[in-house]
Design a protein around this nucleic acid. Structure first.
Lengths: 214, 214
DNA sequence: ACCTGAACACCGTTCAAGT
DNA sequence: ACCTGAACACCGTTCAAGT
């Protein structure tokens, strides 16, 4: 849409930041690297963004907004919540750094969009007015909580999630079986499970609870 | 228990790190500040810990372990899970930086203790063997997810949580009411709610779901 | 074996100076 | 109004040198 190497703008800076974050992680996002990519001086960036925290918040919003906008159309509320949650899961899976910056600032748009998207569907589900806040809070906490774990995973040097899970599973198997009997039983499943599938299973559990207590 | 200014040890270093983290947050934990507190050189610390990441992991374990050990005695499984969750909530509330470092390393003890504590009680609750993994994962994700949000809050300059919530609530009220009707309804509750109470309400919702689907 | 502290290779951020 | 790039005040980490 926009031209190529146009003059600097917050939008161009944020897009360049997202490229660096996706390619090499949060450690690689420095003002010097960003300035080099944008063929400008490091100080120039400060004319458009206040500091690194604002830059990360803007990058996070720029990833979450289109993901939430993807949840269009109609459907049973339960299905819509599932779609919202999966859209976010995939967005954060593709941009692991996002999970760590969802709560950085009060004026951030990302959390507002997530809350609204979830809350709307809970109302459609028929959750009573006095329980909507607790229910929405629980679902949102779960969604962004898993996002945060994904983020921690993405921060790791070896971004290979299955390798990390395998290492944890091996660790669990090495623990004292009398002190950690449950973990010994779970180690194999931890190693082999599918994160995305398990994420939806957990969400369904919460929705079942909401419908039961409702 | 130990003497005062004994020779350096990993334990003493971790305790000093926890003091700094609690008092002034994660930004204040530098090897120079740590060395000054311990009356030694910055490089000396590296004899006992590999790097800053290991130091943070050890500090996290040192906070989580006693919290989990506090959950002693017997009781109905549901009550024991609640006690576990609240013990962790209070520990992370008192040491906000902990939430951000629960998943740093595969060999970390904290997550293993949380999984084992939750899983054991789910077994006692009668959750069928093939669903134990999903149920434990959901509960643990929720618990540490909320912990992560608390951590984000603790990272903020103004560590005053209610001030931050009030700022978010005001933001919600300023949003376009036709695009964000749900948030407009929720703003007042967001401003006034009790985090800890809502946390348990969410946990109860999940437990209700587990018992329903179970 | 353990500690010291200067040195190295970075950061985010500022700011005088330019256009 | 917007950009430049050197400078400032830091970091984590290393490592020769000490005891």
């Amino acid at each position: 849409m926009a031209g190529r190497a146009e003059s600097l703008s917050k939008e161009r800076i944020v897009q360049a930041a997202i490229c660096i974050l996706d390619a090499d992680g949060e450690k690689a996002l420095t003002f010097r690297a960003l300035a080099a990519d944008l063929a400008t001086g490091a100080g120039a960036i400060y004319w458009h963004v206040a500091d690194k925290s604002e830059l990360l918040a803007a990058a996070t919003d720029a990833v979450v907004a289109p993901a939430m906008a993807n949840v269009k159309g109609d459907g049973p509320p339960r299905e819509m919540i599932r779609r919202t949650a999966l859209e976010l899961f995939d967005a954060i899976d593709a941009h692991g750094w996002v999970g760590a910056h969802l709560f950085d600032r009060p004026e951030q748009a990302a959390m507002a969009q997530i809350w609204e998207g979830v809350g709307k569907q809970l109302q459609a589900l028929g959750v009573s007015e006095r329980r909507q806040f607790d229910c929405a809070s629980t679902v949102v906490s779960y969604i962004v909580g898993v996002a945060g774990q994904n983020a921690a995973n993405a921060r790791r040097v070896t971004a290979d999630r299955s390798a990390f899970l395998a290492a944890v599973a091996t660790r669990w198997e090495q623990l004292d079986p009398t002190a950690y009997p449950f973990l010994h039983q779970m180690a194999a499943q931890l190693r082999d499970h599918d994160d995305r599938e398990q994420y939806v299973n957990g969400l369904d559990l919460i929705l079942a609870g909401i419908e039961t207590v409702g």
